[in-house]
Design a protein around this nucleic acid. Structure first.
Length: 146
DNA sequence: CTATTGATTGTTCAA
DNA sequence: TTGAACAATCAATAG
């Protein structure tokens, strides 16, 4: 399997200062609230290094929708080279996702299912590791007898 | 330059 | 059962 190296130099040559008219909907605000919070944690990751060094704390595996996104993204970019951001793709993806039948979606569901299984295993190991070394508080052990 | 936002649905833990 | 929150991605924007 060929793995695509995640190395892309982005040359930003934005000059045309256009009037950006952005509609601030209440919905958008709500969304940003949540994401902002999660970003705070993710920020630490980027701040430290571009690499992820989180050997523990198994993150949630991507859902079937996300796997579908990976494929859809490539096609979408081919058909719409003008479109750039993922936001537009996400919208198109969501729309199509709903139009897809179960048989088509089940393929991605299957992948997600396996991922969840792995995630479960990781969680178990994480718990075990915690038991091993990490001492979590909230553990009252009566040791009066001494 | 760096960090953040923005949008999509699915999955998962907790009460 | 419900809900809050987080999962990837990447371009654009704000500071």
């Amino acid at each position: 399997m060929a793995k695509i190296a995640a190395s892309s130099a982005s040359a930003s040559t934005s000059t045309t200062g256009k009037l950006v008219l952005r509609i601030k909907s209440n919905e958008g605000m709500k969304r940003s609230l949540r994401q902002t919070k999660s970003r705070e944690e993710t920020k630490a990751n980027q701040n430290k290094s571009k690499q992820k060094i989180d050997a523990e704390k198994p993150k949630k595996p991507p859902t079937a929708f996300f796997y579908f996104l990976e494929d859809f993204r490539k096609e979408y970019q081919q058909q719409n080279p003008d479109v750039k951001s993922m936001r537009d793709i996400g919208k198109a993806c969501g729309e199509k996702w709903k139009t897809m039948t179960y048989e088509e979606k089940v393929q991605y569901y299957d992948i997600a299912t396996e991922k969840r299984a792995e995630f479960d295993r990781a969680t178990t190991e994480y718990n075990k590791k915690k038991q091993n070394g990490e001492y979590e508080d909230t553990d009252e052990e009566s040791e009066y007898d001494e």
